[in-house]
């Protein structure tokens, strides 16, 4: 049976089919979920090459879990978001060499962070600001405002309570706004 990314087959059905050796289902899953994994990893890591590695690793874990996938326990997308988030966390910790929880959250308008934003492109500025956020805040903001997940969905991905999600997204947005405030003119918002 032929599938594509827009196939009506549900994620779980495709995963079960792949678990049974269906290569068409594998292709449909790859087309459906690799962009998701790549998008989130790129936002979390701010590095395209690393994000591609994470996306591939996350998809590999999906292939491996397929035979044991228990239907109805979790959505495939939620599971994948969680895997991507964990892989990104691991890489960020290795990259920085210290626990991210130990890093102080940036004060509003930290000059050093703003000064590092040399790219005037809005997307790049946003990515730079995201990169400056503490990892948990960044993850919550990316999932809420860029991936469009609901707070309960984010809670499931991050394995925390909904209130903690609300707190993280609120603090993340405030920090983002502060980080971007110094770039308003360069981003074309200064005269509006």
């Amino acid at each position: 049976m032929a599938f594509d990314a827009s196939s009506q087959a549900s994620d779980e059905v495709l995963l079960v089919l792949y678990g049974n050796g269906d290569r068409g289902a594998a292709r449909a899953l790859a087309l459906r979920f690799t962009p998701l994994a790549l998008r989130v990893a790129a936002r979390m890591l701010g590095d395209r090459a690393e994000a591609e590695d994470v996306a591939q690793e996350a998809m590999l874990r999906l292939w491996r879990v397929a035979p044991e996938w228990r239907q109805g326990e979790a959505r495939v997308s939620t599971w994948l978001y969680r895997v991507v988030a964990n892989l990104c966390t691991d890489r960020l910790r290795r990259r920085r060499g210290v626990g991210l929880d130990e890093i102080a959250e940036p004060e509003d308008g930290t000059p050093g962070v703003v000064e590092r934003m040399i790219d005037t492109d809005r997307a790049s500025a946003l990515q730079d600001a995201l990169d400056a956020l503490p990892e948990r805040q960044r993850q919550a903001v990316v999932l809420r405002h860029l991936e469009g997940l609901t707070n309960p969905e984010i809670a499931a991905v991050m394995q925390i309570g909904v209130e903690a999600v609300e707190s993280l997204t609120a603090r993340g947005k405030r920090a983002l706004a502060a980080l971007l405030a110094g770039q308003r003119d360069e981003l074309g918002y200064g005269h509006g």
Binding site: A26, L29, T34, L38, L60
Partner: peptide, 11 residues
Amino acid sequence: ALLARVLEDAE
């Protein structure tokens, strides 16, 4: 290239 890698892993 990434899609190809992912599909190779699946295979």
